Computed example of a mutant assay.
Amino acid sequence: MKTTSLKEQMNRYFMFAVLLFSFLFATANSNAQSANSAPIKNVVLVHGAFADGSGWKALYEVLTKKGYHVSIVQNPLSSLEDDVAATNVVLDRQDGPTVLVGHSWGGAVITQAGNHPKVAALVYVAAFQPDNGESALQWLQTAPPAPENGVLPPDDKGIVYYDQAKFHAGFCADISKEEADFMYASQGAFYAKGFVTPITKAAWRDKPAYAVVATNDKSIDPSIQRAMYKRSNTKVTEVKGSHVVFMSQPEAVAKVVIAASKNSKS
């Protein structure tokens, strides 16, 4: 009977150990890749001026039914810094990578707040997207306002309101009058200084950005939206809708948010 030498036994143990290590490494690497490619499930929504967080309800419902964890920021609208701080409070509470979504003025907010380490992607919904040193107002002034636009000059307290007589046609023409009336009544007091405050670090320069252009927008001209998003190489989806396209076309906007969650690194 042939006996196995100590050297042969050692060689066999060594080969077994190598194979086992290779298997374990491959399994761990595969699991890590699967985790990294898993869709992001956290979404934070940031409203703009002349609105509040309640306007996100339709989009919230679409996304939560699809398994997303959705949080809504209530911007104080008192300054860019205050709105960024309010957004960061919500981002701090997320349990992992997050898609940060901003509408209108909220686009300026997410451009600054998007530098938060938990933000994996940005979604601009008919929103401002300034660069470093730029303000939202600079972009608003690059095209003449539509006749329906009802943004009023700041009052004696520095607060900007929307003309009630033009609110439905100029801000949210494709939702019902009842919804428009509630939206007008629930809007926050937007301080004009936010509009003129420049961005110090534009997050879209470092993180993937997606955008919805509202083609019937009477508050931020679609040409302004296209120019901003083209400059930044943002992935754009055009949707027929008013400035509140996220209310009138929540399924279409949800598709863009979902694309951002699936295509961005978690």
Results as ranks from 00 to 15, higher is better:
129 Q>H: 09
127 A>M: 02
52 D>A: 00
39 P>L: 05
127 A>N: 01
91 L>V: 05
51 A>L: 05
42 N>I: 04
116 H>C: 06
77 L>T: 07
82 D>V: 02
36 N>I: 11
39 P>T: 05
48 G>I: 00
104 S>L: 00
108 A>D: 08
134 E>Y: 03
93 R>C: 12
121 A>T: 05
123 V>K: 00
71 S>T: 12
140 L>T: 08
31 N>V: 11
116 H>L: 05
34 S>K: 15
36 N>Y: 10
43 V>W: 04
70 V>K: 01
107 G>E: 02
52 D>G: 04
123 V>C: 01
90 V>C: 07
33 Q>S: 14
136 A>C: 10
39 P>E: 09
96 G>D: 11
63 L>I: 09
136 A>M: 13
29 N>E: 14
106 G>Y: 01
106 G>T: 01
65 K>A: 09
85 A>K: 14
139 W>D: 06
22 S>L: 14
59 L>F: 04
84 V>I: 06
47 H>S: 11
111 T>H: 13
22 S>P: 05
107 G>K: 00
28 A>C: 12
68 Y>S: 12
48 G>D: 05
97 P>F: 04
57 K>F: 04
30 S>K: 15
116 H>N: 09
117 P>I: 00
14 F>P: 10
82 D>F: 03
53 G>Y: 03
136 A>R: 07
30 S>E: 14
32 A>D: 15
28 A>F: 12
26 A>N: 13
105 W>H: 10
70 V>H: 06
48 G>A: 06
95 D>N: 15
119 V>Y: 06
45 L>A: 09
19 L>K: 13
49 A>R: 01
22 S>E: 10
34 S>M: 12
64 T>G: 07
